[in-house]
Design a protein around this nucleic acid. Structure first.
Lengths: 195, 195
DNA sequence: AGAATCAATTGACATATGTCACATTATTGC
DNA sequence: GCAATAATGTGACATATGTCAATTGATTCT
């Protein structure tokens, strides 16, 4: 097996016990892709036909609200991303997924996933687990939004996703936690003064 | 089949194509229970060992934050409720589920569900679908929390869950949408004046 | 039915945050 | 490397909302 699929293998076998042979049979369904910073994996109105395992890079998910972008997710190395509802239900996506850095992904189509379901039930179970992961992510986001003040929201993100704060611009973080970028800027300067 | 299980059967066969025989084999696992207003299905720190189909009544899910209750979900007739993460992962619940009205539920234990998994794979698929429903609920809640003003949040709930507003006290709704009950009270009087 | 408890309303006030405007600093592209 | 563009930081100000307190209205329980 080429080394480029080694990390997705670890990622999957970390979630679920899977025989090496079973995994290797899926290799033909995987496609390695390079995505340029600023490019989109998914856009509003289209159906997300692939799920992407991120080998390198960083993506944001956002939707448009009154013409403004609202970020809902940041995904980086060693995780999977897609417009979940669109991918699962084959319906038009309400959101965009954009690369914030040059990225390398391993792409798996919905068709491929269905044929893997047929070949081995472990792929069904993996799908169920990925839905559970999505639930956990949504729960985490609800928590992030439920904090009362901008400062609390930022400090929470600082501990729950420190790498996001290191790599994502302040305007995108502000949008994610639901405060204006000016307020977040003031919160940050206030915090750095205290230290 | 006694009539008391007719509605849960409709509910399940609405989600997934299921042979009548397959469903009937599960009947022995269902338990009918009556819950008094104010009583709890799940409390913080315990493991949610059952999932409940609600035949009658209304439940709220909440957690404690700095000693204050924060509502996260209202469930009523013809839907299922449990502390999802606790039930799925067999870990201590971080939330409470309380009856806001006298209720009748049909209860299914985690053990029973696992044995149904063995008997027929349609129950596995049902489980995945219930997780998708949970995802949709969480997404809806994120949307509710993402509106900017108290008025927008309330008006959204008014259209998305009108029955909740009819049956749930204002203090619980305020907690759900993340505003103080005083503010919600003012928002409501403002809205009724305009009409 | 009446007492007691709980829920909702309303007023006064302090404040966190959004918005606009502009200055400053980074980043990008040629 | 330099111009152009984008991102971030700050000040001034208006306002939506939380908090506290007091009142009114509704439920509950014996």
């Amino acid at each position: 097996m080429s080394t480029e699929f080694q990390d997705i293998k670890s990622h999957i076998t970390n979630l679920i016990q899977m025989n090496e042979e079973v995994f290797n049979l899926a290799l033909g369904h995987f496609t390695l892709k390079h995505i340029k910073k600023g490019d989109y994996l998914v856009t509003e109105g289209t159906i997300a036909k692939h799920i992407a395992y991120i080998r390198k890079g960083l993506f944001r998910t956002f939707y448009l609200k009154d013409g403004n972008e609202v970020n809902t997710c940041f995904c980086m190395e060693n995780s999977m991303t897609t417009s979940h509802e669109s991918f699962v239900n084959k319906k038009a996506s309400t959101e965009y997924i954009q690369a914030l850095e040059d990225a390398t992904i391993i792409s798996l189509s919905h068709e491929s996933l269905l044929s893997l379901y047929e070949s081995n039930s472990e792929w069904v179970e993996l799908s169920r687990l990925l839905t559970e992961v999505e639930c956990a992510r949504l729960t985490e986001r609800i928590k992030a939004l439920s904090f009362e003040t901008a400062k609390e929201k930022y400090l929470h993100l600082l501990t729950s996703q420190p790498k996001v704060i290191q790599r994502v611009s302040i305007q995108h973080i502000a949008s994610y936690i639901g405060v204006s970028r000016e307020t977040l800027s003031r919160v940050r300067s206030q915090i750095s003064q205290l230290q």
